[in-house]
């Protein structure tokens, strides 16, 4: 009995100290850097398709999906072996990508053909599609998997899609050129990053009320802390991350990071925010408690990591 109890304790301990894994797309050398976040080092470098950009992860399926915009396909990585196990051919140019929390559907934004593909994760050939608007960019799915939000960049709006029928139920006008999207953990707040307006739209997903907050130059992506108290936004042309207090809706810090920061994700295990630096081929790490820059992890050429890129 005692033995079992100790084993149980050890297992608990192992679960608590389990490091997260980040999957960073490197556009310039057609690879994905796999980072052990706790150790702050790259453990694997995986060759994928041409000009990889987007990342979506399913912990339950042990899969990472990577959009390769210039080779028009999706690389499927097995997280147990960190090897590409399949390549899904796409007719258009895939950029934004997200997986439903129920793991049943993978959503892919086709940049040039203006539509969203809904791919069955059990059978990749089973696909549905919906035309959204010119240049669909960022995608996020609600926690109940029933709503898909799409940043329709060239029409300056967010399309809300019913995932059962794959129809657009609502369009919300935001700032000029929305690109990255983020959701609060409870799904009640949607964040849209407006690239040309240098702002973030904070949207209530029941009342659709919207507040805009100014950020830095040419912002791309955002992520909220799990408690939804803080929002982090990458400013690509200021080489900074804006840290916003979501209670007061004010910027509380602006952190210098690697040049041209793009994708951003929050690691719950280490309480750190990871930022892909396209301009300097690395990931910048921010301590979420102190809101201070912690250091860099060298990755591949032109790191982007567009999407939720941490397996946790």
């Amino acid at each position: 009995m005692m033995k079992i109890f100790i084993l149980f304790l050890l297992l608990q301990l192992a679960a608590c100290t389990q490091n997260s894994t980040a999957y960073i797309t490197n556009q310039g050398d057609n690879t994905v850097s796999v980072i052990d976040v706790g150790q702050a080092k790259v453990t694997h470098t995986i060759a994928v398709g041409k000009a990889p950009v987007g990342v979506a992860i399913s912990k339950a399926l042990h899969r990472v999906f990577i959009t390769n915009v210039e080779s028009q396909n999706i690389s499927v990585i097995d997280t147990n072996t960190n090897q590409v196990v399949e390549t899904i051919k796409i007719e258009g140019s895939p950029v934004g990508i997200a997986i439903a929390p129920d793991n049943k559907t993978l959503y892919v934004a086709d940049w040039y053909s203006d539509h969203i593909l809904a791919i069955n994760t059990v059978n990749y050939n089973e696909r549905r599609e919906v035309i959204v608007a010119k240049a669909p960019a960022g995608l996020v799915v609600s926690p109940d998997s029933k709503q898909l939000y799409v940043a329709a960049r060239d029409t300056n709006e967010i399309a809300v899609i019913d995932t059962a029928t794959l129809t657009i139920t609502k369009r919300i006008t935001v700032g000029k050129h929305p690109f990255g999207l983020a959701l609060s953990k409870d799904g009640n707040t949607l964040y849209a990053v407006n690239v040309y307006a240098n702002s973030v739209s904070i949207i209530n997903t029941s009342t659709w009320q919207q507040t805009k907050i100014k950020v830095g130059e040419h912002p791309y992506c955002a992520v909220a802390s799990p408690d939804n108290k803080t929002l982090y936004v990458t400013n690509t042309q200021d080489d900074t991350v804006s840290i916003i207090d979501l209670n007061t809706k004010k910027t509380i810090a602006t952190i210098e990071v690697g040049m041209t920061p793009e994708g951003i994700s929050y690691d719950t295990a280490s309480q750190q925010v990871l930022v892909a630096s396209w301009g300097e081929n690395k990931v910048s790490v921010i301590d979420a408690h102190t809101s201070k820059f912690k250091g860099h992890i060298k990755t591949g050429d032109k790191s982007r990591a567009f999407g939720l890129f941490i397996l946790q």
Binding site: Q27, G28, A51, V53, V69, E70, S93, V95, W111, K134, A135, R153, D154, H177, W278, G279, K302
Partner: peptide, 9 residues
Amino acid sequence: LAHGPTPQK
């Protein structure tokens, strides 16, 4: 028109 999906450096 807006830019494409793959920036060059």
